[in-house]
Amino acid sequence: MDELLIPVFVLASIIVPLLALALILYAVPVRVTFRLVFRDGHQEPALAVSWSVFGIRTSHAEGMTVTDVLVANHAVFSRTGSMQTRGTRHIPDQPAGLAGTPDAGEIVHIMQGIMELAGSFGPVFWRECRFEEARGRVTLGLGDPVLTGECCGMYWASRFILEASRIYLELEPVFDREILELDITAKMKVRRPLRILIAGVQLARHPAIQEAMRVMKRQSRRVPVL
């Protein structure tokens, strides 16, 4: 009897945590926050993804990328890297009919498969995602007081339509100079991430995606990086 209980216990110790994880992935939503700051001709995007008390946040500013791993909104790990590229990709001239280069028929076949997949993955993604709200502040000046006033008037006239769509923007007009500054934050919630995860795995394993990946790898090996 004991010899029978040992494999049952081992199997249960594997299945039960997987079922618990699947239940949590199904029940606990994923929240996505995107922030865009545009000031003095420079943009500083930031993206944060959180699931329960865990999350990850990445931001770009002054040529640097900062990635933080969060637990209960506190950074427990941070990494900073440069956004500068390490090399320039140069595509040499290649003769027609070079081996490894996909022809038009192969490309059309791959695109048809990907378009069919988009029709199955897209509805699952949009059904499980919910736009919560967007808030921010916009400073606008067109250099011409008349044009600035007309633009702001059109915004204020349609403001109730934006607020009905949960988009709340404060517009500050500047009439004496040209200026554009943005500070906008958008939030989205993925209600059942497990469904998107399953659809994503099925998408990645589809023959059309596998063929597209093979073609991309084949081409990347033929293009040197200088």
Rank of each mutant, 00 (worst) to 15 (best):
residue 1 M to K: 01
residue 1 M to T: 11
residue 4 L to E: 13
residue 6 I to D: 00
residue 12 A to Y: 09
residue 24 I to K: 14
residue 28 V to Q: 08
residue 29 P to V: 04
residue 31 R to F: 10
residue 31 R to C: 05
residue 31 R to E: 07
residue 40 D to I: 08
residue 42 H to N: 09
residue 43 Q to I: 07
residue 45 P to H: 01
residue 46 A to G: 11
residue 52 S to H: 09
residue 53 V to F: 05
residue 53 V to D: 07
residue 56 I to M: 13
residue 58 T to N: 01
residue 59 S to N: 05
residue 60 H to I: 13
residue 63 G to H: 00
residue 65 T to I: 15
residue 67 T to H: 04
residue 68 D to Y: 12
residue 68 D to E: 15
residue 68 D to H: 15
residue 70 L to K: 02
residue 74 H to R: 14
residue 78 S to I: 06
residue 78 S to R: 13
residue 83 M to N: 06
residue 84 Q to S: 12
residue 86 R to G: 15
residue 89 R to G: 08
residue 91 I to T: 15
residue 96 A to P: 05
residue 101 T to D: 00
residue 102 P to M: 14
residue 105 G to L: 06
residue 105 G to W: 00
residue 110 I to E: 06
residue 114 I to E: 05
residue 116 E to W: 07
residue 116 E to N: 11
residue 119 G to D: 03
residue 120 S to E: 09
residue 121 F to E: 06
residue 123 P to M: 02
residue 127 R to C: 00
residue 133 E to T: 02
residue 134 A to K: 04
residue 135 R to W: 04
residue 136 G to I: 04
residue 145 P to V: 04
residue 147 L to V: 01
residue 148 T to I: 02
residue 148 T to E: 06
residue 150 E to M: 09
residue 151 C to H: 05
residue 153 G to Y: 06
residue 154 M to A: 15
residue 155 Y to P: 08
residue 156 W to V: 15
residue 158 S to Q: 12
residue 160 F to S: 13
residue 160 F to N: 07
residue 164 A to F: 03
residue 168 Y to F: 14
residue 171 L to A: 10
residue 174 V to A: 03
residue 177 R to A: 10
residue 178 E to F: 01
residue 181 E to I: 00
residue 185 T to A: 07
residue 187 K to R: 15
residue 189 K to S: 12
residue 191 R to D: 04
residue 191 R to A: 12
residue 194 L to Q: 13
residue 196 I to E: 02
residue 201 V to P: 03
residue 204 A to Q: 15
residue 207 P to Y: 02
residue 208 A to V: 10
residue 215 V to N: 04
residue 215 V to F: 03
residue 220 S to I: 13
residue 220 S to F: 08
residue 221 R to L: 10
residue 224 P to S: 07
residue 226 L to H: 12
